[in-house]
Write a protein that binds this DNA or RNA. Structure first.
Lengths: 339, 339
DNA sequence: CTGTTAGCGCTTTCAG
DNA sequence: CTGAAAGCGCTAACAG
């Protein structure tokens, strides 16, 4: 049985507006009345209907969080940070996994708009015309968890990301600095935007050091441990084996190391492996992965902040935030053996 | 600019009810009218207001997902499974992290009810009277992601879990079967309900084998890698060191192994380590953890199923589902050296 | 300080 | 097949 302010009003022989005022801590209510209302509200187990309220106030106090996959440690930390901050401000978060499926993405985004959502934090893939159109036409504040692309520059959105290209580039540069010139690349699917940017960083560092790109050394296999194994195997099957491997994320690197060690390659003596992400496990003794640290918590927290800013200030200027990464040098990388 | 059915009605000189019917694929509308409505709806970028609809239909098509911490791999997989299935059925999921804080738990739960939520999947801690009361009084379908306790038996809720006690017990039994009698225990905080149940399993297996419990061997330190290190250190500081360690989760086990190897203990030759959870990384060569496999995906999926059942059938009988676990024997455990 | 009234955007009778 | 009217639960002027 669900009670409404009407029930309280009838019970106390008051008007519903007085009840509403009392419940909302409005000043224009006598202490006595307020107390009576609050008491009977409790007794009757009254629960406000937030939807009805939103209908009038035009605020739902809900925000949407669209990400590719919540089981990805990167996104789960972002999701924690976002929810943490936002719930403190009285917002609830509707979350959805797109799994990089454009259709799911569109559907989820649309449903969010239909919910009268107050803001959206999202990690979209490549936006098709439909999505571009929806984003352009809504005035719901939006924060992208990735770079804003060329064709999206006109959108009124904020964004937060680290410089994927520069971060990947510096990782590869580190390998080159150690003397490596045959550097393998193990990446995720081509669909992911960060994948492209990281690959660009790889290419740029090769180019800056006059190393020719060898497509035999580039393998896009997927994003988890098992794919790291596959990637390593493909690379080591070459006649001219690489002396170092750069992977697009730590799980790939860990998988690669696992395969290498299982096949009697020593890491880093025979081959260096460089990760990207700095997961907690990457610091373990047995793994001790050289990698790039990504400030996941900071990204989640600041994404929420950015959104709150946009929600507060009617037409705040969209911000484009770039956070810093840094190289974490451990013992999965070393000079090449023939150096 | 957000359009309503009113706008469409005015534009087409129709009544809002006709527009509503057309939009909702109601039979009682001429093909011609429906087409006109659908077209102008698209043109005007009309978006239904789902909140307004819920007000009438009493269905919000939202469900709540309350868990302790989304970055916990166990819960992130559950969260993925839940969202996946539910989004297919047209539901959206509001998620929140309680971080085992009773206050957050209560607040989040309450906000869910105020949203006219259609159902809730939750992993609560110990329920205080407030929570018990709220759950008792609502008729929102609820699924617990843990065992239903004594004092909760009367609640109309479904639940899904594996048998924590039996699973932990079988893990410890495996150690005993190998000849271990001094078995350390590294656990999370006492607050967590699963922690209690797993500890009980440990005790039961000791008892069943006439092994006296030694409180020096029991350490509750926390739930992640760093805590595993701490736990291992505390155990090995004993004069009479254990020959095996059982941990409440894989990350603890991984941390323990890390500390042990860093301090020149061989695993499993000098000391065995048993995990609990079977994370993806636990299968890695360098880790190769003996552990208990928990069917996370299945739990998420079936939790969503249970909830859907309750939502569909008005007063379905609550179900209590117990899923199976199984021991995964790898190479972090062996006979004790003095055996 | 309190009540009356209107209306948020939508669905749903009930007439025609 | 279409329209008028009522109302979901609530807030927000506007009177008094």
């Amino acid at each position: 049985m669900v009670r409404t302010i009407k029930d309280i009003a009838r019970e106390l022989d008051l008007s519903i507006s007085t009840v509403s005022r009392a419940l909302n801590n409005n000043a224009d209510v006598s202490e006595k009345t307020r107390k009576r209302v609050l008491e009977t509200a409790k007794e009757m187990r009254y629960q406000p209907n937030v939807n009805a309220r939103s209908l009038i106030t035009k605020k739902s106090n809900m925000i949407g969080l669209m990400l590719s996959d919540i089981t990805d440690p990167f996104f789960s930390e972002v999701a924690l940070g976002v929810e943490n901050l936002l719930s403190k401000e009285g917002y609830q978060v509707i979350y959805g996994n797109t799994l990089l499926d454009a259709e799911k993405e569109r559907r989820f985004f649309k449903s969010l708009l239909e919910r009268n959502i107050d803001g959206i934090i999202m990690k979209p893939g490549k936006l098709d015309d439909d999505m571009l159109d929806m984003i352009e036409c809504t005035d719901v504040p939006i924060v992208f968890l990735r770079d804003v692309l060329e064709e999206e520059q006109h959108l009124q959105i904020s964004s937060i990301d680290f410089d994927q290209t520069a971060a990947a580039g510096s990782a590869v540069q580190h390998l080159i600095d150690q003397g490596h010139r045959r550097i393998g690349y193990v990446g995720m699917s081509k669909q992911a935007s960060e994948s492209k940017a990281r690959y660009r960083g790889y290419l740029e560092s090769l180019h800056a050091n006059d190393i020719a790109m060898n497509s035999q050394y580039v393998h896009r296999v997927g994003g988890s441990i098992v794919h790291g194994r596959i990637g390593a195997e493909k690379l080591m099957k070459q006649t001219k084996q690489p002396t170092a491997i750069f992977t697009e994320n730590d799980l790939l690197a860990i998988g690669a190391i696992d395969w290498l060690r299982a096949h009697a390659y020593r890491v880093p003596e025979d081959i260096s492996v460089m990760g990207f992400e700095n997961l907690e496990i990457s610091g373990l003794h047995q793994i001790s992965l050289t990698t790039v640290h990504l400030p996941r918590k900071e990204i989640g927290y600041r994404a929420a902040k950015l959104l709150l800013n946009m929600i507060m200030a009617a037409n705040a200027i969209p911000e484009r935030v770039v956070v810093k990464t840094n190289l974490v040098i451990r013992s999965s990388t070393a000079k090449p053996c023939d150096y």
